[in-house]
């Protein structure tokens, strides 16, 4: 066994998994609070890339900018994208999911896919049917870690994902709003009695999840240098799988699931054959669920049929 190669692939897996993990967080939060598989989440992530591109173009950002200006442009881009996507999340929840809340379990699933198709088509109308190049403004030099090399962009991806995950954990566990979210997820009726505004809390959940997706959109735009209106579909599917793998509703689990899927994908590419990556991911998922029916970190749900 070539351990250097293994290590190198591990780095690839972590950077790939970090992106899945951030998207999975949004899935798992929404699921945790209203038990909805929000299929539109992947498209919110892609829309984030498009908004980021538009912002960068407006700011006139390019690779020749001075470091300070560049940092400023990036900060503005992140802020704008995250806010726009957060607002989009609230709008989606308000018009496509809230009217159906409590009516029929599968109806919101269909509206979610309806929203997903609509977003995809709008993005296509906006920037055309072909992949759109994303300006390469962050240089990508390589650093050596002993025998391993890691690109700067990979570090950015991993680092920013970790920061977002930590921020989310702090938010959920250390703030009043986070507490409200947790309470609502556990028992909305009790939460309501305690004076928590359920509608606001759910909207906030969508806001936070979409903000994370938007940020992931900016990061992947910078990392892959290309955005395409249909990218969100597969990314969303994989991220959803990650959320379930980790135990849906559990933010730590979603992150763990994301990294695990990234790891499975790269190791399949290295040792089995790239074309089996999807099969490997879902096989592991099924195996895990057979032995742990509520995912890796999921708790046994109370009976609720």
């Amino acid at each position: 066994m070539n351990w250097v190669l293994f290590g190198q692939q591990l780095i690839n897996g972590v950077s790939l998994g970090a992106i899945y993990a951030v998207i999975a967080l949004g899935y798992t939060m929404v699921y945790g609070i209203i038990e909805l598989i929000n299929f539109a989440h992947g498209d919110v992530y892609t829309a984030g890339s498009f908004v980021a591109l538009a912002t960068l173009v407006l700011l006139g950002a390019s690779g020749h900018m001075a470091a300070a200006a560049l940092a400023f442009a990036l900060a503005v881009t992140f802020a704008v994208t995250m806010l726009v996507m957060g607002a989009t999340g609230i709008v989606i929840e308000r018009f496509a999911y809230r009217p159906l809340r409590g009516k029929q379990r599968l109806a919101p699933l269909l509206t979610a896919i309806g929203v997903s198709f609509s977003i995809e088509n709008l993005l296509q109308l906006w920037m055309g049917p072909s992949p759109v190049p994303f300006p390469q403004i962050v240089p990508n030099p390589f650093f050596s870690l002993g025998p391993l090399t890691v690109g700067q962009m990979q570090l950015v991806v991993i680092g920013s994902s970790l920061v977002m995950m930590a921020a989310l954990q702090l938010f959920v566990h250390r703030t009043r709003l986070g507490k409200a979210m947790r309470a609502t997820a556990q028992d909305w009726m009790a939460a309501e009695i305690m004076g928590i505004d359920i509608n606001k809390t759910i909207a906030l959940t969508f806001f936070v999840g979409s903000v994370l997706a938007g940020a992931a959109g900016v990061i992947t735009g910078l990392f892959y240098g290309n955005i395409w209106f249909i990218n969100g579909f597969r990314a969303g599917l994989i991220a959803f799988t990650a959320a379930v793998l980790g135990g849906i509703g559990n933010t730590t689990g979603a992150a763990l699931g994301g990294f695990l899927i990234g790891f499975i994908e790269v190791m399949t590419a290295q040792y089995v054959g790239f074309q089996w990556a999807t099969v490997a991911v879902f096989s592991v998922l099924i195996l895990v669920l057979i032995f742990r029916p509520t995912g890796l970190l999921g708790q046994q749900l109370p009976e609720r049929t």
């Binding site: 496509a96 009217p99 159906l100 009516k103 029929q104 109806a107 919101p108 269909l110 509206t111 896919i113 309806g114 929203v115 997903s116 198709f117 609509s118 977003i119 995809e120 088509n121 709008l122 296509q124 109308l125």
Partner: peptide, 17 residues
């Protein structure tokens, strides 16, 4: 796609059952 998506949303909102 947009028409399909919007159609799905509208139908489900009008007749969730």
């Amino acid at each position: 796609f947009l028409l399909y998506g919007l159609g799905l949303i509208a139908l489900m909102l009008l007749r969730p059952e």
